[in-house]
């Protein structure tokens, strides 16, 4: 099956000060698929993810090209705010802003200058439905987002990202702070979302990668070791290091 590429990474290198932490990563993220980045902590998987929408700008030096619609978005001249609107990010810790659920969801839209009440209402419902949160909160849109449970907060953060209508959603261990029930709800949500979005997520949870991801990239000590269909990586890895990691020999 030939799949279109949503985002292409070429020769990505990342440095924290003098410390070289990511070496020569080349990756093509397939469109409308879920790609999981796995590896031990410190393998550089989160660093790669955060480089994809320039969240590392203040923290690290990133070289190489990240091509998105034929634009190298790693070029400092590129409008980083638009990049982040097109390539959204959901973080490890749910971080709703201290305001109502409704205001949280439309926050990004408001920034983009959208004022039409009708459009905003519609987008709130749409995003919350996509994030599988609508039914739980539709009667309390005006109440504070901080009153929601951890899992609900994280789905609210997903909805907040979706509301800006990005093409790609980056997720940095989106369920690591959640209980198993919330985790499986979010995993279900992800599978729904890939109809419309390309999803790239970092996870330390191997089952999560095998359950939800179509593609899996394995990283070790800053190097990309192997990238293939999830089934291939888990059942029949080409590299010994991948096999060792999956069988729990290190990590």
């Amino acid at each position: 099956m030939q799949v279109k590429t949503a985002l292409e990474v070429k020769d990505l290198q990342v440095f924290y000060g003098d410390k070289h932490v990511v070496f020569d990563v080349n990756l093509k993220f397939p469109q409308h698929q879920i790609t999981a980045l796995i590896g031990a902590s410190g393998s550089g998987k989160s660093t790669v993810l955060r480089s994809l929408n320039r969240m590392n700008d203040d923290l690290a030096r990133v070289t190489g090209a990240i091509n998105f619609h034929d634009v190298n978005i790693n070029d400092p001249k590129v409008n980083v705010y638009r990049v982040r609107q097109r390539i959204g990010m959901v973080f490890q810790q749910p971080t709703p802003f201290p305001m109502s659920i409704y205001e949280n969801v439309i926050y990004g839209l408001r920034l983009a200058g959208e004022k039409d009440r009708h459009v905003l209402d519609q987008r709130v419902e749409e995003s919350l439905r996509q994030a599988a949160l609508w039914d739980e909160v539709k009667d309390q849109l005006k109440s504070s987002a901080l009153a929601l449970s951890g899992g609900q907060q994280q789905r609210l953060c997903i909805a907040r990202t979706l509301a800006v209508q990005p093409e790609i959603i980056l997720m940095d261990e989106p369920t690591s702070a959640l209980d198993p029930v919330s985790t499986s709800q979010i995993e279900d949500t992800l599978v729904q979302l890939k109809e419309q979005f390309t999803i790239i997520m970092v996870t330390h949870n191997m089952q999560q990668a095998s359950r939800s991801a179509d593609w899996t990239a394995f990283m070790h000590q800053g190097h990309l070791i192997e990238f293939d269909k999830t089934a291939t990586i888990f059942m029949n890895p080409h590299e010994q290091q991948t096999a060792d990691y999956l069988s729990g020999k290190f990590g």
Binding site: H69, K77, Y81, R82, R86
Partner: peptide, 19 residues
């Protein structure tokens, strides 16, 4: 250049905010 490429390479209100 298509619209999206233009958007990505040109300043937006957020860029002005930042300045």
């Amino acid at each position: 250049m298509d619209d999206l490429q233009k958007q990505l390479t040109q300043p937006s209100p957020e860029s002005h905010q930042e300045w």
